[in-house]
Design a protein around this nucleic acid. Sequence first.
DNA 1: ATAATTAAATACCGATCGGTATTTTAATAA
DNA 2: TTATTAAAATACCGATCGGTATTTAATTAT
Lengths: 185, 185
Amino acid sequence: MRTFWEKGFAGTSMSDLVASTGMAKPGLYANFGDKEDIYKKALEHYSDKMASPLTNELLAFDGPLETALRRYLFEIAHSVIGNAHPKGCFIINSGFDCAEAGPGLKELSKSLNAARREALKTVLDRAQDRGELSKKADTNVLADFYSAQPAALASQAQAGAREEELRAMVEVALSALPGISKNGA
Amino acid sequence: MRTFWEKGFAGTSMSDLVASTGMAKPGLYANFGDKEDIYKKALEHYSDKMASPLTNELLAFDGPLETALRRYLFEIAHSVIGNAHPKGCFIINSGFDCAEAGPGLKELSKSLNAARREALKTVLDRAQDRGELSKKADTNVLADFYSAQPAALASQAQAGAREEELRAMVEVALSALPGISKNGA
DNA sequence: ATAATTAAATACCGATCGGTATTTTAATAA
DNA sequence: TTATTAAAATACCGATCGGTATTTAATTAT
């Protein structure tokens, strides 16, 4: 998972996987399939271990919408900095790096990105039902916007941004929420 | 340029470049250097032909800040959809796909991303000097935020978003500008 | 202890990788 | 027209690519 995460699909060789897993090549093929199969399983593992816990926490959080979004995006900001693992987000990377990969891979990448969007859409709709968010707000558009912010954060992280800079960007993004006061307005 | 743009550094072989340029391999080496040199020159060419015209237009635009940013981000939204060329933005791609490339390449990628940020910072500072943007607004943070939105747009484009969806996201991002009224507030 | 089965490691496959030496072609000079 | 130079294409280099056949080692069953 980590090797594909940091080096991408084309940038990772089977020998790299042998080195990082300690398993010999025939073992990798016997247990996981070919290179693309391994990539998919690594990406799914990332989704289960890294992404899903965050979206589950977002969905389970009981509190103001703005707080929920801040917590979620702050956690992502922390994660993409990569103190304990490669920088960036494997799921977002997969969207860029599988632009010309097999259709099955692109499909998986899209579905994992869509899952993040759906979680945000759910949270936004709930807030709207609670009356916390105006009925006039378009939750589809807001879901698109907020689900795309992790890509913005990951991009800045790759360029060397620090976590506090990412958090400041999150605050700007949150100020786009209808009914939120803005810094400096 | 187009080949590296759509397939990335590791995903592009010298044979791919021979096929897409029509120049034989020794000619490529004699005229442009090795693979990394060619990538750098392709990326610089992209910057000159695709990115710089947009930032120059942004800097030259004489009108309200919000209009300037909308025009700029709409043009990027149109570009990353890729009707006439590969999807996404080569400069943003380079930030992801050169995570482990030579240091010279990463440096170039960072400087091109920084150029976009600087242009936005200039425009924001000008608006602040004109009194159009509150003195309390932090133009460094806003520059970070808006210069990262193209990555958000490119990511959505890779996932198959349509141009109108990207424009709607841009409108949300613009609503984070201090002093701009929000949809649905 | 021996035979049968499973697992894992070595060795190897053709193809392609990035990169060049060499030859052929084309253009210029005499 | 011939000699010289510049350019471009063919052929080739060792290394590595993704992927397997084969052999060795470790279990299990008898």
